[in-house]
Simulated assay, not measured.
Amino acid sequence: MQRVCFLLKVRADRLAEYRERHSAVWPGMLRALTEAGWHNYSLFLREDGLLVGYLETPDFAAAQAKMAATDVNARWQAEMAPFFEALDGAAPDEAVKPLTEVFHLA
């Protein structure tokens, strides 16, 4: 099982709305994530907008590809893109660059 951690930056003026959107994630999006192999998925948001994402999956590239093939993900990413800084035209899920794990206490 791969453990994946990534960082993104939420715009300071959109923090409250970002939190609100994630208090009611679309059921279809939740289903798609589960079916694509995203497990133990969490997002942590710091007050300055730093977003830390963590998930576990058997194969992250395959899990990303499965999500990219869903309509619900395309709609969710389009709605979420304006919340983020420095995406350089990419959708938020395309801007995810996993961090290198340097330690894990099993």
Rank of each mutant, 00 (worst) to 15 (best):
Val10Cys: 08
Val10Trp: 14
Val10Gln: 12
Arg11Val: 07
Arg11Phe: 09
Arg11Leu: 10
Arg11Tyr: 06
Arg11Gln: 14
Ala12Gly: 10
Ala12Lys: 07
Ala12Phe: 08
Asp13Tyr: 05
Asp13Leu: 05
Asp13Pro: 07
Asp13Val: 11
Asp13Trp: 07
Asp13Thr: 11
Arg14Ser: 12
Ala16Met: 11
Ala16Gln: 15
Ala16Gly: 10
Glu17Lys: 09
Tyr18Ser: 10
Tyr18Ile: 14
Tyr18Arg: 08
Arg19Ile: 05
Arg19Gly: 01
Arg19Trp: 10
Glu20Lys: 15
Glu20Ile: 08
Glu20Cys: 14
Arg21Asp: 12
Ser23Trp: 10
Ala24Gly: 10
Ala24Arg: 12
Val25Leu: 13
Val25Lys: 13
Val25Ser: 06
Val25Gln: 11
Trp26Asp: 14
Trp26Tyr: 09
Pro27Phe: 06
Pro27Asp: 11
Gly28Val: 05
Met29Ile: 09
Leu30Gly: 03
Arg31Pro: 02
Ala32His: 06
Ala32Trp: 03
Leu33Glu: 11
Thr34Arg: 13
Thr34Val: 04
Glu35Tyr: 00
Glu35Gly: 05
Ala36Gln: 00
Ala36Val: 00
Gly37Ser: 02
Gly37Met: 00
Gly37Arg: 00
Gly37Ala: 03
Gly37Trp: 00
Gly37Gln: 02
Gly37Leu: 00
Trp38Arg: 04
Trp38His: 03
Asn40Tyr: 06
Asn40Cys: 02
Tyr41Cys: 08
Tyr41Val: 01
Ser42Leu: 10
Leu43Arg: 14
Leu43Asn: 15
Leu43Phe: 12
Leu43Val: 13
Phe44Ala: 12
Leu45His: 08
Leu45Asn: 07
Leu45Glu: 07
Leu45Thr: 04
Arg46Leu: 09
Arg46Ile: 00
Arg46Glu: 08
Arg46Trp: 07
Arg46Gly: 00
Glu47Asn: 03
Glu47Pro: 03
Glu47Arg: 10
Glu47Trp: 04
Gly49Arg: 02
Gly49Phe: 03
Gly49Trp: 03
Leu50Lys: 05
Leu50Ala: 05
Leu50Thr: 08
Leu50Arg: 07
Leu51Pro: 08
Leu51Arg: 09
Leu51Thr: 04
Val52Gly: 02
Val52Ser: 07
Val52Met: 12
Val52Lys: 06
Val52Pro: 04
